[in-house]
Design a protein around this nucleic acid. Structure first.
Length: 671
RNA sequence: GCCACUGUGGCUUAGCUGGUAGAGCAUCUGAUUCGUAAUCAGAAGGUCGGGAGUUCGAAUCUCCCCAGUGGCUCCA
């Protein structure tokens, strides 16, 4: 007999050889809703046999672990379906991921339209309710089972110690190399949806075979699946690319170029408000504003190390006209031109891929003493990077963007305090905008690598400063070894977009390298020359990406201070035009953004038209308002307030704008 | 850059196996003056992402290019 401890603390006695399933059914009844079990904290199949004293806990399909198992099992079901439909395909790997699962196959590319057929096959296989069986095999047997699949053999070669066996999971005739655990039978996998197909490289290595990756979703119940799909639909409505068009915030034009954002008037308002907001805080924190040009000589970037090393991700250099002509006359080929630029034999200019070299030159333009430090130079600096064409997306990944950049030149002792200051700035901004759903990544050096520049003792200190700063935020943060830049540790702020992709926004990076390369110095109190340390920081990352994320964050419903139209005045009839003009003037006198429609169109129609642009308020003016010098307001959700005295309205609205409250609240308190 | 898919007037979109495009919204004109999510009538607007080809004839077939979407790779 063995003793099994259940989660509620009761201890039951069973005959050795009982399975997890039997224990859980005994404890919770037949409808226990569990897919697998935890035995002494480790995950096992339901069929796992217990032969000694232990604790057993069911893993429900709606728990985090349960959904993970469900996804992993659904990946197996997908592979089984694909193998039946495409006998020549070779399954490789198929894990559960954050939002579902995928499986990679070595096979001829398939189209998205083929997913329906595969999905149907999966349903059919699920319905046939195969038992999912775990089989332990010796290494020899394993290799025998996968003799026709070099991918699986490669995994066996890599993951298994010589002589070790492992397990396969079988459902029907089909089986896969896997550690498990899995659902007990395929009927658990009825509610799946294949979402997309795309290529992926074997083991993520661009130089290796390209595989076909199929993505899918799975949920324990029909309702849960429907809800998930609905949520995804809803999220798509908030996509900044769609809202950017609907709200007329930005435009990308084929003829201008890929990944180049045209900020339209309404979008420009948002960007300007954000820039004003951040500029205000920069002044408070003692930053100095600078302006620098969009290009710089190749020599500058040779010195900084960005050319030719990062050439691939830059626009090609600009070469002076006379030189170009001379080289052309001499019959110089493009390849030769490129080589001449690399070796420095000819000079050219580059669109700046970052602002640091320019700011460094400002630092170096005078002799500096410790009394001048920290020197904090800030600029909304526009940079250009040659992103791969397939990677460009909306406002979040572009080829020209404006960083809310700054470079701090500090002494070694000032690093900790200044990093903290940078972090505080990020926090002020995120707090004001109600952005709470972000994660913080502290990039540290990989202790086993020698690619890092600078003295390890100084690194330790800088890393400790970054850690302490991240910890001070009060949000989740994670250290990631090997994620530091080669020149110093960093802190990144990462948010997710509506479809779950992660984007890096703000960043704070400590840099020992550039001051060295540019031989920057300051005079210390000891009368000696010392090397300053640089801190690069951009709390928003870039205005483009940040605004893109912000559009999705607010679903286009911006707080009053940010929204392009704060008041849209609508008249009931033509005779109210004069009053509308008067109200508009009064509002504009108080620096409130107003638009007016005094045409004779029906009020319903006007409301329908302008609500799409999400003004903070629609101001309705008719006979009543005109006679009593009042306004009536309509909020975005349709709520109304009637006959608010005009001066009272202005006062309240001005207050709302100045306070930068999260949402318009003059009609009803925000939800 | 790689693979699949997509690309029709400002927006959304119909157009099956090839025979030179239909519609709704928006726009303009006229009528209506009607208190909060589609008043009526009329007009104008596209040669179908660009180019080449097959064909008597292509938005519909082929090829090349451009752009977008999804993912991979990359991201100082």
């Amino acid at each position: 007999m063995i003793h099994v401890t259940l989660p509620d603390g009761t201890v039951n006695e069973y005959a050795a050889g009982i399975t997890c399933a039997e224990v859980i059914t005994d404890a919770l009844g037949k409808k226990h809703g569990c897919l697998a079990a935890k035995v002494n904290g480790d995950e096992y199949d339901m069929s796992h046999v217990l032969d000694m004293n232990c604790s057993v806990e069911g893993i429900r399909s709606d728990s985090e672990e349960g959904i993970h198992i469900l996804r992993h099992s659904a990946a197996h079901l997908l592979a089984q379906a694909v193998m039946e439909l495409y006998p020549g395909a070779l399954p490789t790997i198929g894990p559960a991921i954050d939002r579902g699962f995928y499986y990679d196959f070595a096979m001829e590319p398939i189209a998205e339209s083929d997913l329906k057929t595969i999905e149907k096959k999966m349903k059919e296989l699920a319905r046939r309710n195969f038992t999912v069986e775990r089989v332990e095999l010796s290494e020899e047997d394993l290799r025998e089972h996968f003799v026709n699949n070099p991918y699986k053999i490669e995994i066996i070669d890599d993951k298994l110690e010589d002589g070790d066996g492992s397990t396969i999971y079988k459902q029907g005739e089909w089986y896969d190399l896997c550690l498990g655990p899995h659902v007990p039978n395929t009927s658990r996998l009825m509610f799946t949806k294949l979402t997309s197909v795309s290529p992926a490289y074997w083991r993520g290595d661009q130089d290796r075979e390209q595989l076909v990756r199929i993505y899918g979703l799975v949920e324990p119940t029909k309702d849960a699946l429907r809800e998930t799909l609905h949520r995804m639909e809803e999220a798509k409505k908030r996509d900044h690319r769609k809202l950017g068009k609907d709200l007329q915030l930005f435009h990308i034009d084929e003829e201008v170029g890929q990944g180049l954002i045209l900020w339209t008037p309404r979008g420009a308002v948002i960007r300007q408000e954000l820039q004003d907001f951040i500029s205000h805080h920069l002044r408070r924190q003692g930053y100095k504003q600078v302006f620098t040009p969009h290009i710089g000589k190749l020599d500058l970037y040779r010195k900084s190390g960005h050319f030719p090393y990062y050439q691939e991700s830059q626009y090609p250099p600009l070469v002076e006209r006379d030189l170009m002509k001379k080289l052309a006359d001499e019959g110089c080929t493009c390849g030769e031109l490129s080589n001449l630029m690399k070796t420095g034999e000819i000079e050219g200019y580059m669109l700046k891929p970052m602002n640091c070299p320019h700011h460094i030159k400002i630092y170096a333009s005078q002799s500096r003493s410790y009394r001048n430090l920290p020197l904090r130079l800030a600029e909304f600096g526009t940079v250009y990077r040659w992103e791969q064409s397939g990677e460009i997306s909306g406002m979040t990944r572009v080829r020209g963007f404006t960083q809310d950049d700054a470079h701090l030149f500090v002494t070694e002792d000032q690093i900790a305090e200044e990093v903290l200051g940078c972090i505080e700035l990020v926090q002020i901004i995120f707090d004001k905008l109600g952005m709470t759903d972000y994660r913080v990544r502290v990039g540290l050096r990989d202790p086993d690598s020698d690619k890092y520049v600078g003295d390890p003792a100084r690194w330790d200190k800088a890393e400790e400063a970054c850690r302490a700063a991240a910890a001070s935020l009060g949000v989740p943060w994670a250290e990631e070894e090997g994620e530091a830049a080669f020149y110093g540790p960093k802190i990144d702020f990462v948010v997710k977009d509506v479809i779950g992709r992660e984007w890096q926004l703000g960043t704070v990076q400590v840099d020992y390298n550039l001051p060295e390369r540019f031989d920057l110095t300051y005079m210390g109190s000891d009368g000696e020359h010392h090397r300053p340390v640089m801190i690069h920081r951009a709390p928003f990352g870039s205005m483009e990406r940040f605004c893109g994320v912000l559009i999705e964050h607010f679903a286009g419903k911006f707080p009053t201070w940010l929204t392009p139209t704060q008041c849209h005045i609508i008249t009931l009839g033509e005779r109210h035009e004069a009053y509308a003009t008067k109200v508009a003037h009064a509002l504009r006198e108080h620096d409130i953004r107003v638009e007016v429609d005094a045409t004779d169109a029906h009020i319903k129609k006007k409301i329908k038209t302008y609500r799409k642009l999400q003004p903070a308020y629609m101001v309705i003016l008719g006979d009543g308002e005109m006679e009593t010098n009042t306004v009536s307001l309509r909020a975005r959700n349709g709520d109304q307030v009637a006959d608010l005295p005009l001066d009272e309205f202005i006062k309240l609205l001005r207050h709302e704008i100045d306070e930068k409250t999260s949402q318009p609240s003059l009609v009803a308190p925000p939800e």
